[in-house]
Amino acid sequence: LTVHVGNVTYHFDNPEQAEEWAKRMAKKYQGQIHVKDGQFRIE
């Protein structure tokens, strides 16, 4: 699973971990989480 934050990409084996990280990053950067094809993108 991949989480994109700006132009930085993080890889996770565990979906719960990826989702948790995406939520934390979205809160930190006050962005929206977009989920597409098993990838999380924070914008």
Results as ranks from 00 to 15, higher is better:
Glu19Lys: 10
Ala18Pro: 00
Gly6Asn: 14
Val35Lys: 05
Lys27Ser: 12
His34Thr: 15
Lys36Met: 11
Lys28Pro: 01
Val5Asn: 02
Met25Asp: 01
Asn14Asp: 14
Glu43Ala: 04
Asn7Leu: 09
His4Pro: 00
Lys28Gly: 02
Gln32His: 13
Ala26Glu: 05
Lys36Ile: 15
Gln39Leu: 03
Glu16Asp: 11
Asn7Pro: 09
Ala26Trp: 05
Lys27Arg: 09
Phe12Asn: 00
Gln17Asn: 09
Gln32Cys: 13
Glu43Phe: 08
Lys36Cys: 13
Val5Asp: 02
Tyr10Asn: 00
Lys23Cys: 13
Ala18Leu: 06
Ile42Ala: 05
Pro15Ser: 14
Ile42Lys: 02
Gln30Tyr: 06
His4Trp: 13
Ile42Arg: 01
Pro15Arg: 14
Ile33Thr: 04
Ala22Met: 05
Val3Asp: 00
Phe12Gln: 00
Lys27Val: 12
Asn14Gln: 08
Val5Lys: 01
Lys28Gln: 07
Lys28Tyr: 12
Arg24Phe: 14
Phe12Ser: 00
Tyr10Lys: 04
Lys23Met: 09
Pro15Gly: 07
Leu1Glu: 02
His4Thr: 14
Ile42Asp: 05
Val5Gln: 01
Gly38Met: 02
Met25Pro: 00
Gln17Leu: 12
Asn7Cys: 13
Asp37Tyr: 01
Ile33Trp: 07
Val35Asp: 04
His11Pro: 02
Thr2Ile: 09
Ile42Phe: 03
Gln32Asp: 05
Gln30Arg: 10
Val3Glu: 00
Gly31Met: 14
Met25Trp: 06
Asp37Gln: 02
Ala18Cys: 09
Glu19Asp: 04
Asn7Trp: 11
Glu16Met: 12
Thr2Lys: 09
Asp13His: 07
Gln32Ser: 08
Ile42Asn: 04
Glu43Ile: 13
Pro15Ala: 11
Arg41Ser: 09
Ala26Asp: 02
Thr2Tyr: 08
Lys23Val: 09
Phe12Lys: 00
Glu19Trp: 15
Glu43Tyr: 08
Arg24Ile: 14
Met25Glu: 05
His4Ser: 13
Gln39Thr: 07
Gln17Val: 11
Met25Ile: 10
Gly6Val: 04
Lys27Leu: 13
His4Lys: 12
Asn7Arg: 11
Glu20Trp: 12
Val35Trp: 13
Arg24Tyr: 14
Ala18Arg: 02
Asp37Ala: 01
Lys23Tyr: 10
Arg41Gly: 07
Ile33Arg: 00
Glu19Thr: 07
Ile42Ser: 04
Ala26Tyr: 05
Glu43Ser: 06
Ala22His: 02
His4Glu: 07
Thr9Ile: 14
Lys27His: 12
Arg24Glu: 14
Val8Asn: 09
Lys36Tyr: 12
Val5Trp: 13
Ile42Trp: 06
Val3Ser: 00
Thr2Leu: 12
Asp37Leu: 02
Tyr29Lys: 02
Lys28Glu: 10
Arg41Met: 14
Ala18Trp: 04
Val3Trp: 01
Tyr29Glu: 04
Ala18Ile: 03
Glu20Asn: 08
Arg41Val: 15
Asn14Val: 08
Lys27Ile: 13
Glu19Ile: 14
Gly31Lys: 05
Glu16Trp: 11
Gln39Asp: 10
Asn14Pro: 00
Tyr29Trp: 09
Arg41Asn: 12
Lys23Ala: 05
Arg24Pro: 00
Ile33Leu: 11
Asn7Ala: 10
Pro15Lys: 13
Lys36Ser: 12
Phe40His: 04
Pro15Met: 13
His11Gly: 02
Gln39Tyr: 06
Phe40Ser: 02
His4Tyr: 09
Ala18Asp: 00
Ala18Met: 05
Lys36His: 11
Asp13Val: 10
Arg24Gln: 13
Lys36Thr: 13
Thr2Ser: 11
Tyr10Glu: 00
Ile42His: 04
Glu43Cys: 15
Asp13Ser: 13
Arg24Asp: 08
Gly31Asn: 03
Gln17Trp: 09
His11Phe: 13
Arg41Ala: 07
Trp21Met: 04
Leu1Ala: 15
His11Glu: 07
Gly6Trp: 09
Lys28His: 08
Lys23Asp: 06
Gln17Asp: 13
Gln30Trp: 06
Gln32Arg: 08
Lys28Thr: 03
Lys23Ile: 13
Asn14His: 12
Val3Ala: 02
Phe12Trp: 02
Gly31Trp: 11
Pro15Ile: 12
Asn14Leu: 10
Phe40Ala: 02
Asp37Val: 01
Gln30Pro: 06
Lys27Gln: 13
His4Asn: 07
Glu43Pro: 03
Arg24Leu: 15
Val35Thr: 05
Pro15Asn: 07
Gln17Glu: 14
Arg41Glu: 10
Met25Val: 07
Val8Tyr: 12
Asn14Trp: 06
His4Arg: 10
Trp21Asn: 01
Met25Ala: 05
Val35Arg: 04
Ile33Phe: 06
Gly31Pro: 01
Arg24Trp: 13
Asp37Phe: 01
Lys27Trp: 07
His4Ala: 10
Val8Glu: 08
Phe12Ile: 00
Gly6Arg: 04
Asp37Glu: 06
Ala26Gly: 04
Val5Ile: 12
Val8Thr: 11
His34Leu: 14
Met25Arg: 01
Arg24Val: 13
Phe40Gln: 03
Ile33Glu: 02
Gly31Thr: 10
Ala26Val: 06
Trp21Phe: 15
Glu19His: 13
Phe40Tyr: 14
Gln17Pro: 01
Ala22Ser: 03
Leu1Trp: 15
Asn7Phe: 11
Val3Thr: 01
Phe40Ile: 15
Gln39Asn: 10
His11Tyr: 14
Asn7Gly: 13
Asn14Thr: 14
Glu20Ala: 12
Phe40Arg: 00
Glu19Ser: 07
Asp13Ile: 09
Ala26Ser: 05
Phe40Lys: 02
Ala18Lys: 02
His11Ala: 07
Glu19Arg: 11
Met25Leu: 11
Glu16Thr: 10
Trp21Leu: 03
Asp13Asn: 12
Thr2Gly: 04
Asp37Lys: 02
Ala18Gly: 07
Phe40Pro: 03
Ala22Trp: 05
Gln30Val: 06
Thr9Ala: 11
Arg24Lys: 14
Tyr10Met: 04
Gln32Val: 15
Trp21Glu: 02
Glu20Val: 06
His34Val: 15
Tyr10Asp: 00
Gly38Thr: 01
Gln30Asn: 15
Gln32Gly: 04
Gln30Phe: 07
Glu20Thr: 06
Glu43Val: 13
Trp21Thr: 01
Tyr29Asp: 02
Gly38Ser: 03
His34Met: 11
Gln17Met: 11
Val8Lys: 13
Tyr29Pro: 01
Lys28Ser: 03
Gln32Ile: 14
Leu1Val: 14
Lys28Ile: 09
Met25Gln: 04
Thr9Asp: 05
Leu1His: 15
Asp37His: 02
Lys28Met: 06
Ala18Gln: 04
Lys23Leu: 10
Val5His: 06
Ala26Phe: 05
Val5Met: 08
Lys36Pro: 03
Pro15Thr: 10
Trp21His: 04
Lys36Asp: 08
Lys36Phe: 11
Val5Tyr: 08
Asn14Ser: 12
Val8Gly: 03
His11Thr: 10
Thr9Gly: 03
Gln39Lys: 05
Trp21Val: 02
Gly38Glu: 05
Tyr10Gly: 00
Glu19Cys: 14
Gln39Val: 12
His11Gln: 07
Arg41Pro: 05
Trp21Ser: 00
Trp21Tyr: 11
His4Gly: 04
Met25Thr: 03
Thr9Leu: 10
Met25Gly: 00
Val3Gln: 01
Gly31Cys: 15
Ala22Asn: 01
Gly38Ala: 02
Gly6Ser: 05
Asp13Pro: 08
His34Asp: 07
Met25His: 03
Glu20Ser: 09
Ala22Phe: 05
His34Tyr: 13
Val8Gln: 11
Gln30Glu: 07
Gln39Pro: 03
Phe12Arg: 00
His11Met: 09
Lys36Gln: 14
Arg41Asp: 07
Gly38Cys: 13
Gly38Ile: 02
Glu19Gln: 09
Glu20His: 07
Val35Asn: 06
Phe12Val: 00
Lys27Thr: 12
Glu20Leu: 10
Asp37Arg: 00
Glu19Leu: 15
Lys36Arg: 07
Glu16His: 14
Glu20Cys: 15
Val3His: 01
Gln30Asp: 10
Lys27Phe: 10
Asp13Thr: 13
Lys36Asn: 10
Thr2Ala: 10
Ile33Ala: 04
Glu20Asp: 11
His34Trp: 07
Ile42Leu: 03
Leu1Tyr: 15
Val35Cys: 13
Tyr29Arg: 00
Lys23Thr: 06
Val35Ala: 03
Tyr10Cys: 11
Val3Leu: 04
Thr9Ser: 08
Asn14Lys: 12
His11Ile: 10
Ile33Gly: 02
Thr9Pro: 04
Thr9Tyr: 07
Val3Gly: 01
Gly31Ala: 13
Leu1Ile: 13
Lys23Ser: 05
Pro15Phe: 15
Trp21Gly: 00
Pro15Trp: 15
Ala18His: 01
Val5Gly: 00
Gly31His: 05
Tyr29Leu: 12
Gly38His: 04
Thr2Arg: 06
Val3Cys: 06
Thr9His: 06
Trp21Gln: 01
Asp13Cys: 14
His34Gln: 11
Ala26Leu: 05
Ala26Asn: 05
Ile33Tyr: 06
Tyr10Gln: 01
Glu16Ser: 10
Ala22Lys: 03
Val3Arg: 00
Tyr10His: 04
Asn7His: 11
Phe12Asp: 00
Asn7Met: 08
Thr2His: 07
Phe40Asp: 03
Val3Pro: 00
Gln32Leu: 08
Gly31Phe: 08
